[in-house]
């Protein structure tokens, strides 16, 4: 286990060290101490390493992650795992707004609550939030799966494309073009697998599925107010 203390190491050195790990590195376990809400921690990683950040992080922790597993033992600031490509990011506490924004792949797990715009413009990432998500979550979400064990805020899935949304609790309101959809066997299978990977103690049957009504896919004058 390699330990990096942010009280004595600057951000550039930390990221350069983590980004510099080759595919076959022997140093697969890393620990980052004293993050104290710093921004852009462990961004742009591209090797199968495990990084544990002990504390809370600022904006864009694990941004554009590939392959790596990043765990934050505290809470994460805005844009955690933004544009993630692959790998896993786990937040033990809460995540601020834009969690998993534009993510293309990989798995983001938030053990606490996620704030507004969770999964905004997501493009293939899987996001599992053990708690609640805030307003405008999955806005313009294109691909991937958002699973919420708690409640969802206002305007869930506004202007949704093909991302799938699963919510166990209540939904304060659905956004434009987002509708509840039938939970078919393949969705239950998918959800079971996601819950399992995210270490979430919930049964797929407890969830409702939401998706795009696809009414905004081709402009119709009667929908003009929804654009």
């Amino acid at each position: 286990m390699q330990t990096i203390d942010m009280a004595t190491t600057d951000l550039r050195s930390l990221n350069a060290m983590l980004q510099g790990q080759p595919q076959d590195t022997n140093e697969t376990a890393w620990e980052v101490l004293n993050p104290r809400g710093a921004h852009a921690l462990a961004v742009g990683l591209d090797a199968p390493i495990a990084v544990t950040v002990r504390g809370s992080t600022g904006y864009y922790c694990a941004g554009m992650n590939k392959q790596a597993s990043v765990t934050v033992t505290g809470s994460a600031g805005p844009g955690v795992a933004e544009n993630m490509m692959s790998g896993t990011v786990v937040i033990d506490g809460d995540a601020s707004q834009y969690a998993g924004a534009t993510g293309h792949g990989g798995l983001l797990v938030v053990k606490g609550n996620a704030s507004s715009r969770c999964g905004i413009s997501m493009k293939g990432i899987d996001i599992v939030v053990h708690g609640n998500v805030g307003h405008m979550s999955a806005f313009m979400a294109q691909k991937g799966n958002l699973v919420v064990l708690g409640d969802a805020g206002d305007a869930l899935g506004d202007s949704l494309y093909e991302a799938r949304l699963f919510v166990r609790g209540s939904v304060k309101s659905l956004g434009a073009d987002c509708v509840e959809k039938e939970m078919r066997p393949e969705h239950l299978t998918l959800l079971a697998e996601l819950l399992d990977r995210a270490g979430a103690d919930a049964r797929p049957e407890e969830f409702r599925r939401y998706g795009s009504a696809r009414q905004l896919y081709h402009f119709k004058v009667d929908n003009a107010s929804a654009y």
Partner: peptide, 20 residues
């Protein structure tokens, strides 16, 4: 940002949230 709060006494056990 959360950074601004990290040195407050008892922050580790405080209720921390984002206003709606």
């Amino acid at each position: 940002e959360y950074r601004a709060l990290v040195d407050l006494p008892g922050i580790d056990t405080a209720r921390v949230w984002e206003p709606e």
